[in-house]
Design a protein around this nucleic acid. Structure first.
Length: 263
DNA sequence: AACACGACCTGGTAGC
DNA sequence: TGCTACCAGGTCGTGT
C-alpha cells in the first residue's frame, strides 16, 4: 500500500514519538525472524530514517531495525503495548509502557534487525531520493539513455529512482503526458525534463498530503486525500481531455493512463 | 539482459 | 444470502 510519501509520513510521526525510548521487549508473531526479539532488547532508539520505501529504526549499539511495509503494512505507536489490534505482527514494548506495532492484515511486510553498516550498504543499491539534490533532470536523462524499459517499469524500478510505486508512477506519467509503454530511450530531452518535473511535483504534494492525513492506525486509503487523475479510474473520463481512462498490465501490475493525453 | 510469472498473504468487493 | 473470481499502494526468485 504505502509508497514513499506514506512511508515518509510514518517516519515523521515515529521520529517524534519514538526517538530516545528504550526497548523493554519485543514480540514477533509474523513478518520477521524470532531472532529480532533478542536483537533489540534493552536498546535505545536513536533515530528513524527512511530510504525509498524502507524504514530504518536506528538503535544504540550499531543495530538497525529495517522495516518494509510492502502492500498493506503500517507501523505506529500505541499508548499501551498490551492493547494491539488483530493484525499486529510485531509488538515492541517501550519504556513508559507505550508500544510500537507493525500491523499488516496480509502479513507481507518484513522486518529484520541488522548491523547498521550492513544495511546502509544495502541501501546504496537504491536509486537517488527523488526529492534530494542528487536527483536532477540530467541524472534522469543519463539513466534514460540506452534504456529500452517502458517508462512505467522504469519509474517502478527502485534502482532508478527510489520510492515511486504503482500510483505515483502512473500519476507522474499522466502529468508528463507520456505513454506508460514508451521505451525510456525514445523520449526526447524535453519529455524527460517534463517527467522529472512531474515526479518531483507530485511527490512533494503527496508527501504533504500524506503527512497531514496520516494519523497512525487506520489505513492509508482512507487517509489518501491526494487527487488522482488516472489511478483506479479506468472507464471514467479524463479531466483534461475527456477521453476514457484505460487500464493495461505491465510487469504484472495495473497501469492506468489516458490514451488522449499520453502519447 | 530483459521480460513474464508465480509466490508470498488476506480482505474487500463486484457479479452471478 | 452465499458463493466465486478478481483485485489490491511491493518485492523476490525462477524460468524462458
Amino acid at each position: 500500500m504505502p509508497e514513499m510519501p506514506e512511508v515518509e509520513a510514518v517516519c515523521r510521526r515515529l521520529r517524534g514519538q519514538l526517538v530516545g525510548l528504550r526497548i523493554r521487549s519485543a514480540r514477533v508473531l509474523r513478518c520477521a525472524d524470532k531472532a529480532l526479539e533478542q536483537a533489540v532488547i534493552r536498546r535505545t532508539v536513536t533515530a528513524v530514517d527512511r530510504r525509498g520505501k524502507h524504514i530504518l529504526i536506528r538503535l544504540s549499539g550499531g543495530i538497525t531495525v529495517h522495516v518494509h511495509l510492502r502492500m498493506s503494512g503500517n507501523l505506529f505507536m500505541i499508548p499501551d503495548h498490551r492493547l494491539s489490534g488483530a493484525s499486529a505482527r510485531i509488538i515492541v514494548a517501550l519504556a513508559g509502557g507505550t508500544g510500537l506495532v507493525l500491523e499488516d492484515p496480509r502479513a507481507l511486510a518484513r522486518a529484520e534487525a541488522v548491523g547498521t553498516r550492513l544495511i546502509n550498504g544495502e541501501m546504496e543499491k537504491l536509486g537517488p531520493e527523488p526529492l534530494s539534490p542528487v536527483f536532477t533532470p540530467d541524472w534522469l536523462l543519463e539513466k534514460a539513455r540506452g534504456c529500452r524499459q517502458p517508462a512505467k517499469l522504469f519509474l517502478m524500478d527502485q534502482t532508478k529512482v527510489a520510492g515511486l510505486g504503482n500510483i505515483y508512477a502512473a500519476e507522474a506519467l499522466f502529468q508528463a503526458r507520456i505513454n506508460p509503454r514508451k521505451p525510456m530511450q525514445t523520449l526526447a530531452r524535453m519529455r524527460v525534463e517534463r517527467l522529472y518535473s512531474a515526479i518531483v511535483g507530485i511527490l512533494k504534494d503527496a508527501v504533504q498530503s500524506a503527512y497531514l492525513a496520516y494519523s497512525g492506525p487506520g489505513d492509508f486509503q482512507e487517509a489518501e486525500s491526494f487527487p488522482l487523475a488516472v489511478y483506479g479510474r479506468q472507464g471514467e473520463p479524463c479531466h483534461a481531455c475527456g477521453a476514457t481512462i484505460r487500464r493495461l498490465m505491465q510487469g504484472g501490475r495495473s497501469t492506468y493512463y489516458c490514451p488522449g493525453c499520453q502519447k
